[in-house]
Computed example of a mutant assay.
Amino acid sequence: MKSWWPRKAAPAPAPAVVAPATPAHHAEHVLRRLEWKVIRRLDGLLQGDYRTLLRGTGLDLADLREYQLHDDVRHIDWNVTARMQSPHVRVFTEDREMSAWFLLDLSPSVDFGSGELRKRNVSAEFVAVLARLLTRHGNRVGAMLYGSGVDAVIPTRSGRRHVLHLLHSMLDRVTAEGSPTRLADLLASGASLIKRRSTVFVVSDFISEPGWEKALAQLAQRHEVVAVRVLDPLELDLPDLGLLTLRDAESGEQVVVDTHDAGFRKRFARIAAQREADLREALTRSGVDALELSTDADLVDAIVRFVDMRKRRSQLASGSLPAHLRHVA
């Protein structure tokens, strides 16, 4: 029996406003607004620390040394370890030219939003901000777009015009209903296409057919992977809105529910909380860092908190973090 829980559903009566799709010719306007309101704030708050968000990209092997406490186990050279009879790790130097890829889930479920923004808008703004920060320093960004499948690949390039092209592609793309999301296909395609070690941002609501966890872990073995999860508050907690018709954004299936029923709302919240716990555990097992972006949260605050977390972790690994702060990191 199919679960009633509307994991990909949007209320048909729509008590809140859902932002309309942004036309392609508005991409320039969106980017200018982000440059003025978001990137300027990030420059002041991070003071260059945004590179911490992109650590691990463009790395060249520089040396080998014995394993030390807090070293990244993914850098262990098992062949040398076997010969030397003690763990050895690869030491890398960072290339100034970084390469970043965005694996973008643009399936129908990301078109949901219970407020002024849809999840697609939040994804697009995040990608535009990160891509602009990178390309204005001469780095290259590329993207793979997933709708009903991997629909398009945008090769890595730099420059503001390239960012506009990427933003246009995200905002202007329409995916028809009818097939479930298979995030594993996007991740496997990324692992096959991206040859050079890069920072890979997987931007998705992670509402998908099962089986993507293994593909994500395999991608993280070669690349520095950040799971950027977009969500909407209504997916976690239903308010008392009376009778609602919920529609599955991908299959089009509809079901009528009574949100006035406190028991129903509690069951919904319990199932949603369990899914949240399972998702976070899966991301942790895959060995990736995670950033959550909500449609009702401030993008700048979310990015700053995430960069600060990664900076503390990097300091902990190098032993430069003060002892009294290590338990926090």
Rank of each mutant, 00 (worst) to 15 (best):
R173M: 14
H29P: 00
F126S: 02
E224S: 14
A297Y: 03
V174P: 00
R33Q: 14
F201T: 00
S107E: 03
A317S: 15
A215P: 08
L134W: 09
E292K: 00
A184Y: 05
Q254W: 02
Q274K: 12
L236G: 06
P23M: 09
I194H: 02
H165M: 06
R65E: 14
K214N: 09
D301W: 01
L61W: 05
R140T: 08
K266C: 09
P23H: 02
D43Q: 10
G48F: 10
L246F: 11
A19S: 13
G58Q: 09
P108I: 07
K37R: 15
D237S: 13
E66M: 07
A302S: 12
R285A: 09
L244H: 01
S318R: 01
A227C: 07
T52L: 11
H26L: 14
V300P: 04
G211C: 03
V203P: 10
D71E: 06
D43C: 09
P233E: 01
P108L: 07
F268M: 12
S169G: 04
A188S: 14
A329T: 05
H168F: 00
S123P: 03
K119C: 08
V200E: 03
H162D: 12
A227Q: 04
H70F: 14
D72W: 12
E224M: 10
P15Y: 09
R140F: 14
L279P: 07
V80L: 01
G319R: 00
L130I: 15
L244R: 00
D232C: 06
A143L: 07
E292T: 12
G190K: 04
A249M: 15
D172T: 11
V228P: 14
G287I: 10
A323M: 02
T259K: 06
G142P: 10
S99W: 02
A143R: 05
G58F: 11
D71H: 08
W5C: 06
P239H: 07
D43L: 10
